[in-house]
């Protein structure tokens, strides 16, 4: 089996490894680096639970090979820092998660959406729903997730401290 040397920056740390040609990026992150926050819900590119940022763009880690990450920068849910704090807080407050299995994927997708939206144009509910439609949540019915992204994106301090 072909073994390929790679060098990849994950959450700010540089890793040099030799990987099997067929090893997926998701399995590399989960098995080799023990970053188990990246979840596998389908392994065929539909559910978005495995989303990570590669060079700042969201990617489905189940569809990308570890070898393709050579020379690139990967951010997983574990590597989201201060920029995701408001989102994490809002997701919790608005009950945007139940089992939490989909949550890392939503955090990645929403972080990308919020970064892209630095234009300052207000997010609309339809726009957010469209942007999140590549991530599946089976538990929540999406309402809390959509509200949380809207709240962070539009900086609306609609705290209902229920």
């Amino acid at each position: 089996m072909t073994e390929i040397p790679i060098e990849v920056m994950v959450n700010g740390t540089r890793f040099r490894r030799t990987v099997a040609g067929r090893l997926s990026l998701a399995d590399f992150l989960r098995e080799e680096l023990r970053l188990t926050g990246t979840h596998l819900g389908c392994e065929h590119g539909v559910c978005g639970a495995c989303s990570v940022l590669v060079d700042g763009r969201s990617v489905r880690a189940c569809l990308m090979l570890a070898a393709q990450a050579d020379g690139r920068e990967v951010t997983t849910v574990e590597g989201l820092g201060a920029e995701a704090r408001p989102l994490r807080e809002c997701l919790a407050r608005r009950h945007g998660l139940q089992c939490g299995f989909c949550t890392p994927g939503f955090l990645i997708t929403a972080t990308e959406l919020l970064q892209d939206n630095e234009s300052g144009k207000p997010l609309t509910e339809d726009g957010v729903r469209e942007a999140l439609s590549g991530n599946i949540c089976r538990c929540t019915g999406y309402q809390g997730i959509v509200e949380a992204v809207l709240e962070v994106g539009n900086d609306t301090e609609t705290r209902d401290d229920a």
Binding site: L35, T36, G100, F101, P104
Partner: peptide, 23 residues
């Protein structure tokens, strides 16, 4: 109000069955 469960799940520190498979 946030749930007790949320902190670890939001950090990507949940422990699901596949995460308990090490070794």
């Amino acid at each position: 109000m946030a749930r007790v469960e949320d902190g670890t799940l939001l950090a990507g520190q949940g422990r699901f069955a596949a995460d308990a498979a090490e070794g």
